[in-house]
Design a protein around this nucleic acid. Structure first.
Lengths: 257, 257
DNA sequence: TATAAGTTATCGTATTACGATAATGTTGTG
DNA sequence: CACAACATTATCGTAATACGATAACTTATA
């Protein structure tokens, strides 16, 4: 009984941890590699992989390396399909995209990051490796800062305690002071901007929306290349962004989730 | 020890089954609903949901209904990120999209269906609810028929035994005979077409690719609205499609997975 | 071919997940 | 408002199962 609640279903937790061990750098792993990476006994990994393979969540190649199976994608797809907010907002997002002709994102707060739940991407030379499911830090994204700016000070302070600032670019805010100041401005303005804080060349404007208890739980953002980004543009995007975020808040307020 | 292999990690299997219980029609479920739907004892469901909530795979709203959590999306995202073939093909697919200016799809065979692994969608009036992770039948998709057409006859016969034909449109092939004939033509041509067999107004051309053992394991397809679709178009798309599918086959041949 | 490393199979034991039941909380109805 | 019906949470003894050590076997490496 190590951590957390009273019910602990170990093998379920371990099985999911095993799936989470895979990533861009670890596409294929052998039994022992998995055992080492997860810190599980090799017998345990053997049982886990056997079960997961049988269910289609893992595949094994002829070199006895394990890969994630397609069942995992299908599972991920289930979420977007079974998310009322996303379904509701989809037409609004399409309208927003048509109106501003820039990449638009729907983010939801998940722990200490924002996760892309829907993204309509403008095709251009510079393509980002962002998709539904991508998790991004709060402190260097327009969506994240928009959410933070509406959080209670207590919450923000606790967040600042545990966050590990990383300078993705020279423009990334990496001190609690700098971030707090930026959040104050954002709060007053009702929107947040990200000017090349996460990636050079990438800018965005984000507006938060709120659940029925008034807590910011997500944001809509519009992204644009740095060379086209300016205050005039922000002003132009602001009204449609606020309209879309407002629709989200309203939906969450009426549909008691 | 009901079915399958010797190792059976029940709670892992049940936990994943629980997640799979969610879908467009079942976005939010209570404990007892989940218990009924999955056929698990309520105590079991209680343990499963507690564990999954703690791990972020489920969320519970104030009405005590469970929803899929964002962790599931993130997990799904892991697959596409950790799939060598997809990473390799992405630029080819972008080129293909530019060249033909139609929606292109990368499908992989998974059981008796094809799953979209990557999709570059042309924006147009008619938008389909298809995304990465969508699973589609083999017998009424260009990709599926392209794969089937290169399968050994034995395999196809076994498939025809177990498949449950459903007429999505009046054009859907719903008999083994009709399908077999179509597959014969496809095999000779080296590509398969889907003319409004899955959805009215939707057509596609698909070309299969092969793993290193020569078994067809996926397909590239190009989709177009029915009003624009004709033989001349197929001819125009064929060469770039074959080129892309060829790249996939070559990749799978060299990278021993 | 010899040696090491990795994978699969076996098995007794301690742990854990199971499901019945009871207690508590919630919702709907007269 | 009180009662009933239902749903959720907590408790607990037992049976089952997941655990991990070990051995047998297979595959890579020098």
């Amino acid at each position: 009984m190590s951590s957390g609640g009273i019910h602990h279903l170990k093998s379920l937790e371990k099985g999911l941890a095993l799936l989470e061990a895979f990533g861009p750098e670890t596409q294929a792993m052998t039994l022992t590699e998995l055992s080492q990476r997860c810190g599980f006994h090799i017998s345990t990994v053997q049982r886990l992989t056997a079960t997961l393979c049988r269910l289609g969540y893992l595949k094994r190649d002829h070199a006895k390396r394990y890969h994630l199976g397609l069942k995992v994608i299908k599972l991920g797809y289930r979420v977007t399909q079974s998310m009322a907010l996303r379904t509701f907002l989809l037409p609004y997002l399409r309208d927003l995209f048509e109106e501003i002709d820039q990449t638009v994102n729907l983010f939801l707060l998940e722990g200490d990051e924002v996760v892309i739940v829907e993204r309509i991407e403008k095709r251009q030379i510079l393509q980002y490796n962002l998709h539904t499911g991508s998790g991004l830090p709060l402190y260097c994204t327009a969506a994240g800062k928009a959410i933070l700016s509406h959080m209670e000070e207590e919450w923000v302070n606790a967040f600042l305690e545990r966050v590990n600032f990383k300078a993705f670019t020279p423009h990334t805010l990496t001190t609690p002071q700098a971030l707090k100041e930026a959040l104050k401005v954002s709060r007053e303005q009702g929107y947040a901007v990200n000017i090349q804080e996460l990636a050079l060349g990438a800018c965005a404007v984000g507006v938060a929306f709120f659940d029925k208890t008034g807590i910011p739980c997500g944001a809509i953002s519009a992204a644009a290349p740095a060379q086209f980004f300016n205050m005039e543009m922000v002003k132009r995007y602001l009204e449609p962004l606020k309209r879309t975020a407002g629709a989200a808040s309203q939906f969450l307020g009426n549909h008691k989730d």
